[in-house]
Design a protein around this nucleic acid. Structure first.
Length: 476
RNA sequence: GGCCCCUUCGUCUAGCGGUCCAGGACUCCGGGUUCUCAGUCCGGCAAUCGCGGGUUCGAAUCCCGCAGGGGUCACCA
C-alpha cells in the first residue's frame, strides 16, 4: 500500500458531465495503479447553489461507472466527515490560527464598498486587487457575521504541474482572498487546502480554472506551513463546437444518461480516458484493467479535447462485440421490449447473438429486435419503395413468395437446411439474391433492416415464418 | 485590459533535431463479404505541423515575435 491519496471533490450542483467524470477517472486510475486511496469529498460550502439530491446523483454516477472510493460521505474513514458543511469547526480553527499569526483579518467593508473598489479598478483597466484597500485597523473578527480574509504576502512563484510542466506567475496574481464567508462557511479556496492537508491528499487533480489562483494557494500553504501537494491539471474537455468548455447548454449529456441508454461502463471509461490521454501506442480499445496499468500522468496531453460522440459510439460498439454470451445477456436484461417478456433466456440469447455485431448501445435492442418477438403490421412501402422489387408486378411477387412458402414448408428450420433451401430456391425462381432474399426478408420481418436471412428465419421459427409469408401473399 | 496556459488531418492523437514531403484511430468515400442495415476485410481522401522570423548541414521538434483560442481577475466552486 502506497501513501498516495487522490480525491474527487465535486460541488453538489446537480450535474456531472464528461469533463467532471474525467477528473474523477484520472484520480481513480492513479490511485488504483499506485495502490493508493481514492476519496470522495463533497464541497458543499455554497448553500445557495446547492441542488437537492445531487449528492446522491454523484454517488450513483460514480457507482455505475465503478469508480469506487475508499472514503466518502457514505463510506466513513479516518479523516471524515467528508462533507465540507460538516467541517466548519475545522476551518474556523485554521482561521483563528492564521489570525493569531497575523495572517488573516476581518473584512470591514460592505459588499457595496467592495463593488465600488472593483468597478474603479475595472474602469481604469486595472486588475482588481483587494489588498490595495487593506484596512489599517481591522475590527476583531466575529465568526459568521463578517468575512475573514487572508493577509497575503505577495511574491513571485514558480511551481511544477505534472501535466502543464513548469508554471510561473508574478506577485500581481496574489491577493487577500476570503477564507471564511460572513455566513460562517469557508470558501473553496480555503476549505480545499485545509481538507487536502487534513486528509493527507498527495495529488490534486482538478480543472484548469484553478491555475490562475494557484499562486494564492501557494502563498496560503506557506502561511500555514503546509507542504503543497502535487498539482495535476488536465486540459478542459470542450463541447463539439470546440471553443468552449463542455456544458449542459452544449447538449452535453449527464453521464448517467449514457449509462441509462446502455453504454457499457468500460466503453465510457475507455472513451473518457482517451480525451486528453494516450499511452503512446496505437492501441485504442482498453479494458479497465489495461487502463489502470497503462495510465500515466506524464502522458496527459496539454491541449483541450473535443467531445466527439461518433467516436464514443464506435468504441461502445467495439466493447459490446467483445462481450461473451453471459455478459451480453446480463447487460441486455433491462432493455428488452415488453413483448419479449414471455420468451426464454435461450431464445433471447439467440436474438442477441444475431444483433450483437450491430449493437452500439443496449437501448437499441427494442428497435433492432421487435420482429423476433411479435408480428409487425404489414408495411407495403417496404416492397413498393425497394428499387429491386418495385419493377415486379404483384402476381410475380406473389408467385415468388409462394415458392418460398412451399419450399420452407418442408424445412426443419436449422440454419444449414435453410441455407441450402434458400440457395436452391434462387435457382428455381431464377432471380438474383437481391430480389428473392429481399422479398423474403421483408415479408418475414416487416423491417427495413435485419440480420442475415437464414439465421433470422431459424430464430423466428417455422410456424411464424410461414404465417408471415402467408400474410404477405394474402395482402397482395 | 492585466496575468497564466494552449495551437499537428474535420475529430481524438503519435511525434522530444535527421528514420516524417508527418504515423494510428474515428468520421467520410470506393470495393469484397450470395438480400437489407450493421459488422468485418481491402483500398482511398484528408494536416505546406496557426503565421512570420531566427538557430542549425538539417526543425513539427530549439529560440524570438505575432495571431487565434481558452482560463482567471467573486463572501462560486
Amino acid at each position: 500500500m502506497s501513501s498516495l491519496r487522490t480525491r474527487f471533490a465535486p460541488s453538489p450542483t446537480g450535474y456531472l458531465h464528461v469533463g467532471g467524470v474525467r477528473t474523477a477517472l484520472f484520480a481513480w486510475l492513479l490511485a488504483k495503479q499506485q495502490d493508493g486511496k481514492f476519496i470522495l469529498r463533497i464541497e458543499d460550502t455554497d448553500k445557495s447553489r446547492e441542488v437537492a439530491g445531487s449528492i446522491d446523483h454523484i454517488i450513483k454516477c460514480l457507482a455505475s461507472l465503478g469508480l469506487d472510493y475508499d472514503e466518502g460521505p457514505d463510506k466513513p474513514g479516518p479523516f471524515g466527515p467528508y462533507l465540507q458543511s460538516e467541517r466548519l469547526e475545522i476551518y474556523r480553527r485554521y482561521g483563528e490560527t492564521l489570525i493569531s499569526q497575523g495572517r488573516a483579518y476581518a473584512d470591514p467593508y460592505t459588499k457595496d464598498e467592495i463593488n465600488k473598489f472593483h468597478s474603479q479598478a475595472v474602469n481604469s483597466n486595472q486588475p482588481f486587487l483587494y489588498r490595495n484597500h487593506r484596512p489599517s485597523n481591522p475590527p476583531k473578527w466575529e465568526f459568521a457575521t463578517m468575512p475573514l480574509r487572508f493577509k497575503s504576502d505577495p511574491k513571485d512563484y514558480i511551481w511544477q504541474d505534472e501535466v502543464m510542466g513548469k508554471m510561473s506567475a508574478g506577485k500581481e496574481a496574489i491577493d487577500d482572498f476570503v477564507l471564511i464567508k460572513s455566513d460562517g462557511f469557508p470558501t473553496y479556496n480555503f476549505a480545499h487546502i485545509v481538507d487536502d492537508h487534513e486528509m493527507n491528499i498527495t495529488h490534486i487533480i482538478r480543472g484548469q480554472e484553478f491555475i490562475a489562483s494557484t499562486p494564492n494557494y501557494l502563498n496560503l500553504y506557506e502561511a500555514l506551513d503546509i507542504k503543497p501537494p502535487i498539482f495535476v491539471t488536465p486540459p478542459p474537455v470542450l463541447g463539439p463546437s470546440g471553443n468552449k468548455k463542455l456544458s449542459k447548454r452544449d447538449g452535453a449529456k449527464d453521464v448517467l444518461e449514457y449509462i441509462n441508454e446502455g453504454y457499457l461502463r468500460g466503453a465510457l471509461i475507455n472513451f473518457i480516458s482517451s480525451l486528453g490521454w494516450n499511452d503512446g501506442t496505437t492501441k485504442e480499445i482498453y479494458s479497465i484493467d489495461e487502463l489502470i496499468k497503462a495510465f500515466s500522468l506524464k502522458r496527459i496531453v496539454k491541449s483541450g479535447a473535443r467531445f466527439d460522440e461518433k467516436r464514443l459510439l464506435w468504441m461502445s460498439g467495439a466493447h459490446i462485440r467483445s462481450l461473451n454470451n453471459d455478459e451480453l445477456i446480463k447487460h441486455a436484461e433491462p432493455f428488452w421490449p415488453e413483448e419479449a417478456q414471455g420468451f426464454s433466456r435461450e431464445y433471447k440469447l439467440k436474438v442477441l447473438e444475431l444483433i450483437k455485431e450491430r449493437l452500439k448501445f443496449f437501448a437499441e435492442i427494442p428497435s433492432l429486435t421487435c420482429f423476433f418477438f411479435r408480428d409487425l403490421p404489414l408495411n407495403p412501402s417496404l416492397i413498393k419503395d425497394n428499387p429491386k422489387l418495385s419493377a415486379f408486378d404483384n402476381s410475380k411477387i406473389k408467385q415468388m413468395l409462394q415458392a418460398a412458402f412451399d419450399s420452407l414448408g418442408d424445412s426443419d428450420f436449422s440454419t444449414e437446411d435453410l441455407h441450402s433451401r434458400l440457395n436452391t430456391l434462387l435457382e428455381s425462381v431464377n432471380q438474383p439474391a437481391g430480389v428473392l432474399f429481399s422479398l423474403i426478408r421483408i415479408a418475414t420481418t416487416q423491417a427495413p433492416a435485419s440480420p442475415a436471412l437464414a439465421e433470422s428465419l431459424s430464430v423466428i421459427g417455422k410456424k411464424r415464418t410461414l404465417a408471415r409469408i402467408k400474410q404477405q401473399i394474402d395482402s397482395l
